[in-house]
Design a protein around this nucleic acid. Structure first.
Lengths: 171, 171
DNA sequence: TTCTTGACTTGGACTCCGTCCATCGTAGGA
DNA sequence: TCCTACGATGGACGGAGTCCAAGTCAAGAA
């Protein structure tokens, strides 16, 4: 039973370690730093208790055109905060989605992806080959394209458009 | 080890039993019967070996505005062919999708849904409350809404539009 | 009608994704 | 500094889907 105690002792490492390949998360870009602190400020303003885990998850997600799965977020977060748990990542992602700071993207693959670009309306372009995702902004308003007689009494509030094709690398 | 033999003996029941509540699958509608035999003919024409399992899966899916999960397809198929396995249902659905006879619909829920209305281009309207799905036909062509400069070199071949809202019952 | 054979079916093991829960730790206010 | 409610943890759990070896059968040939 001593093993259990050892495990418990090892459990609460909340000191952050430097991320070995922290690229693309955007924290080195001065604009991104501002956006990042904006996000953290907004979260704090909404009564979020600012723990190291939540900060790391928010930082991992922050950046342009990043569409990570929950597992990828967990892996990246764990580079900086090795003891962070999967459950915490799922909880935090769920909260960020509820707060409207992050969008859930259901592509055809099995895992949902999380898109931090939630404040600008946009749609997605998915490569059928490699699964990569780009944010795109189609002309026109797809919601307006649905005439009343095609709504069947539904109160329609949102529309999600996913374009599919092959990216330049896969084509 | 006798149990194993008994199980094996019971395994190959391929005689169909009447479906206790076979409504909505459309086989009682004369037009549907025609569509159904059309579908079976097409499949046979494509070299499909016509097994009772495949026939039952195709029949279950056939019908207007039916959007079942794989498990629901399995449950309905099992009413007529009690020994049909989950793996066979998944295989058959996958083949029907590959042949273009059925569309996969990824809603927000975890399970994919299967839409036999694959020959007429349409989009989907999903109720955020109960998860029900309707086929709809928006005006305009959403593919044409994506300008070249927003395609990032992708060879775009398809677009999937999902409208979300509350159905009359949930609103 | 019988035989042959390769495509199909089966059940169970397995993986992946996500949720739940009891327990423990700690951020932030008093 | 102390308290405590909120948050983190890991492990169990469940749903969805895939894989595989072994057994079965549809359909063509004789």
């Amino acid at each position: 039973m001593d093993g259990v105690q050892v495990k418990k002792d090892a459990k609460r490492i909340t000191r952050r370690v430097p991320d070995p390949d922290c690229q693309g998360a955007g924290v080195h870009d001065p604009n991104q730093v501002n956006e990042m602190s904006d996000l953290l400020e907004r979260l704090r303003g909404r009564g979020w208790r600012m723990t190291s885990q939540r900060r790391v998850v928010a930082e991992v997600l922050d950046g342009d055109h990043v569409h990570l799965t929950a597992d990828e977020v967990h892996a990246r977060a764990a580079r900086r905060l090795p003891e962070i748990s999967r459950a915490t990542v799922y909880n935090t992602l769920g909260e960020l989605v509820q707060l409207g700071e992050v969008m859930e993207v259901a592509t055809d693959g099995r895992a949902k992806r999380y898109d931090p670009n939630a404040h600008r309306p946009h749609q997605h372009l998915v490569c059928s080959g490699c699964g990569s995702i780009r944010d795109v902004r189609p002309a026109g308003d797809p919601l307006a394209d649905l005439p009343a007689e095609e709504r069947f009494g539904f109160r329609v509030s949102a529309v999600q458009v996913t374009y599919r094709g092959l990216c330049p690398d896969c084509a």
